[in-house]
Design a protein around this nucleic acid. Sequence first.
DNA 1: ATAAAGCTTGCATACTTATTCAGGTCCGTT
DNA 2: AACGGACCTGAATAAGTATGCAAGCTTTAT
Lengths: 153, 153
Amino acid sequence: MKTERLNVIREVLTRTPVASQDELRRKLRRRGIHVTQATLSRDMHELRLSKGPSGYALPNGNGVVMVAAAEDDAPPSLAEMLESLGLRVRRAMNQVVVRTAMGGAQPVAAALDREGWAEMVGTIAGDDTVLVICADPKSAGEVESRIRAMLGA
Amino acid sequence: MKTERLNVIREVLTRTPVASQDELRRKLRRRGIHVTQATLSRDMHELRLSKGPSGYALPNGNGVVMVAAAEDDAPPSLAEMLESLGLRVRRAMNQVVVRTAMGGAQPVAAALDREGWAEMVGTIAGDDTVLVICADPKSAGEVESRIRAMLGA
DNA sequence: ATAAAGCTTGCATACTTATTCAGGTCCGTT
DNA sequence: AACGGACCTGAATAAGTATGCAAGCTTTAT
């Protein structure tokens, strides 16, 4: 699925420097995603990446946010938020960690708060990471899969 | 002369969008500067330009002045980071808390993220405290001692 | 002055990225 | 079921960028 691939690309770029599309292609292949350079070129364009001396870079945080927010007037739904900013979810005991595009953590946390799920005790957001504290491991698992579903969409 | 040409390039870029080196070559020619694409490629590298969806862009906003300033571009290693900013580490269940000098939490967290250790689920940074979420208590112990080793150095 | 070393550049060419074209797939309609 | 349209993708290739090499210039040392 394309959306999933774009998310993985965002994540790879935030974690490791990528000098060329072919290098990115190889890194994606190791994660089980197999596409050609042509497809990546299109993805790069869609993500509005820029290529500088230190490799590819994601557009500035607020840019990403604006793209998602400019459409509607109502506050964006959590699903929309995750669709455009979410990268991956992991769970550890009673906590869920959501990685987002740079600058995406605050809005995602706000959207999660707005959701008001009973299992969530609270959220904390940095620049690109949201920490969700749940009542217990079971609740965390529930929250994790709910978020994962929205990402996978 | 090369220096003069670099200045003109900076000026042209701030005034008009440039999509390719060949386009830039034509624009320079109209100003009496005649060089080949190969030379421009070298100039672009020297100016540390980046190419995005809207053409070439100067680094750091768009200053025509401070070009010699940016030298050390590579992000410092985690070890260097901890050496200068780290204070102490403590663990609690599956979490590791790293205290840093004031203002040091963000960069330390970023360096930890870059490290990409599998045991780490995510990090969140405040002003002087980094919270590292690990998969479980055992992983946290592993991460703790690794960080402690870098500190102790 | 001559030699050696260091820059800067053009040419040709290797390498990287964008695009065209030709299928596929998935839906909704007829 | 067949059709039509909107996407998505790979293969091939065009377009764009980087680089090895050699030539010409300038500076420094002999």
